[in-house]
């Protein structure tokens, strides 16, 4: 390769083709995907996030929960995601239309959270306790404590209805109460929105064995 021009053209073509072949093609294929209108009740799915949940998504983003948690359920037969109760079906592209930023993650130091709100035990109190003191609901875990999302207030104040009810070694010091801050409320609202229960037509064919081996 004596010629700088040949080199330049090759270098240029390589990335141009990759960009067009991968990103543009994908954009044309499913970039225009829209919400699915239920034929029965005309509802649009997935429903958009509520305002507070969307704020919570940003808290999730700024605290970097994606370093430990994925948000993508793999299909039945490909890993144990469904067996672990992380979802009832695999995640499909349409599920993610509800979020402005899509953080599917790539490390599972903690469980998948795509359907965190669909767990039988998951309610607001569980999430608040988990964030304040992970050990109180999941002994031995290495999930960090997010106690800075909570305010410690004197208990003599009008007792807050939102104060955490913690016992044992996690209980607040006598005369104080632990009250979630605005950011904690937002984050929990987001966690409570995490469930993909709607059954899209495209979510079904994917689990048929014929399609799923379409790899190499």
């Amino acid at each position: 390769m004596k010629n700088g021009l040949t080199l330049f053209l090759g270098v240029f073509a390589t990335l141009a083709l990759s960009w067009a072949g991968v990103l543009l093609t994908a954009q044309r294929q499913f970039g225009g995907l829209a919400q699915y209108k239920d034929p029965a009740d005309e509802s649009l799915n997935p429903a958009a996030l509520s305002g507070i949940a969307d704020q919570g998504r940003m808290v999730y983003q700024d605290l970097g929960c994606v370093s430990c948690h994925t948000q993508q359920v793999r299909r039945e037969g490909f890993g144990a995601d469904i067996g672990r109760g992380w979802g009832t079906r695999q995640s499909v592209a349409r599920d993610y239309l509800r979020e402005k930023t899509v953080l599917i993650g790539q490390a599972r130091l903690g469980p998948d959270l795509r359907n965190a709100a669909a767990r039988p035990y998951a309610d607001a109190e569980y999430f608040y306790n988990l964030l304040y003191a992970p050990q109180s609901v999941a002994p031995g875990t290495n999930m960090p404590s997010y106690d800075f999302l909570f305010d410690v207030r004197p208990a003599s104040d009008q007792p807050s209805p939102h104060a955490l009810r913690l016992t044992g070694r996690f209980a607040p010091a006598p005369g104080t109460q632990i009250v979630p801050s605005r950011r904690a409320d937002e984050l929990v609202a987001y966690l409570l929105s995490l469930k993909d229960t709607y059954d899209y037509p495209e979510a079904r064919p994917f689990v048929e064995p014929k399609q799923k081996e379409g790899g190499h």
Binding site: A26, R74, R75, F78, G215
Partner: peptide, 21 residues
């Protein structure tokens, strides 16, 4: 290398040609 990025999304919520490519 220019075309191999999709292999990071195996099993992910994208059409399967992405990972296959």
């Amino acid at each position: 290398t220019a075309f191999s990025g999709g292999s990071r999304l195996i099993g992910g919520p994208v059409p399967s040609w992405v990972a296959t490519l």
